[in-house]
Amino acid sequence: MLVSEIMLQQTPVVRVQPVWEEWLRRWPLPVDLAQVTAGEAVRAWGRLGYPRRALRLHAAAAAIELNHGGKVPGTYAELLELPGVGSYTAAAVAAFAFGRRETVVDTNIRRVHARLVSGTALPSPSLTAAEMRLAAELLPNDAGSSVRWNASVMELGALLCTARAPKCADCPVRADCAWLAAGEPPPSYVPKGQAWHGTDRQVRGAVMAVLRLAELPVAPELFQREPADLGFPTEGIGVPLAALHRLNSAPEQLERALAGLLNDGLVELRATGYRLPG
């Protein structure tokens, strides 16, 4: 549950599922993950994006082995102490994995609450204290009912009360929906997606694609010059290296990407070049 919750942050299920299945096949218990290097966790993360999450999972596994006898803790407070675990993840794991009464508020739940109760098309761009108070007020007092409530509202938002094309005709609570009663007023803002092409994030991703395949440190000049110009073979890491160079990023952008990866602990710089953390 902890693995899936962290993998699903800002990443759709269809991309997460194969990586999650392979991850649990390799490391079914926290102790199994804790015994490999952080670099192996980052390599297994593949192309899910936001690879710092792999470092956090690895650090959490080590903390679970050290402080909890190798078993994922079951209370919100204990989960919140794990590296990389925030309030939402702690609440979701405590509720769905351990049956505890916790206020779980994700994007889908926020959207259902906004329409059903507040009468607005979308929740505010960022989570507010008022939204958390509303979620806490709506949560049933009984632990078992609260878990079912959280799961039900989340599924309602994911499957019917979607952001762009809500299926109101199929909604089981449409008669009580404040947004429908108000005549479906438009949102007060237009959600903006994150840019990708030409950004530092794209260059970081291309660098990580090289290092995930590399068995040895990658010399800095390979990032800075075309592999063919250096007589480097086109197979193996030559393929992602060529993809990196096709981005035609400015030298300073590549430097920023490498510096950011180093600062985030996703990359190490050794005497012979860059590699995933040991």
Rank of each mutant, 00 (worst) to 15 (best):
C161N: 02
L138H: 09
S145C: 02
G99I: 09
L160W: 02
I109P: 03
S87P: 11
V147K: 07
A77D: 13
Y76N: 03
H113D: 01
A178R: 15
A114K: 04
Y76S: 00
C161L: 09
A77W: 01
V93K: 05
R110K: 04
H68T: 06
D170E: 14
A77V: 02
P125Q: 14
E102T: 05
T120P: 00
M132R: 15
N141E: 15
F96S: 13
H68C: 08
V173E: 09
L116E: 01
L79S: 00
A92Q: 08
H68Y: 15
T75L: 11
A91D: 09
L160K: 04
C171S: 12
V72E: 02
A97M: 07
L116W: 12
V104P: 01
A158H: 05
L156Q: 14
A169H: 13
L122M: 10
L127R: 14
K167C: 09
R100E: 15
V112R: 01
C171R: 07
T107Y: 10
T120S: 13
A95I: 04
G99M: 10
T128I: 12
A130V: 04
C171F: 11
V117Y: 05
P125V: 14
R111W: 05
V147W: 07
A95M: 11
Y88M: 10
V112L: 06
N108R: 08
L134G: 04
Y88K: 07
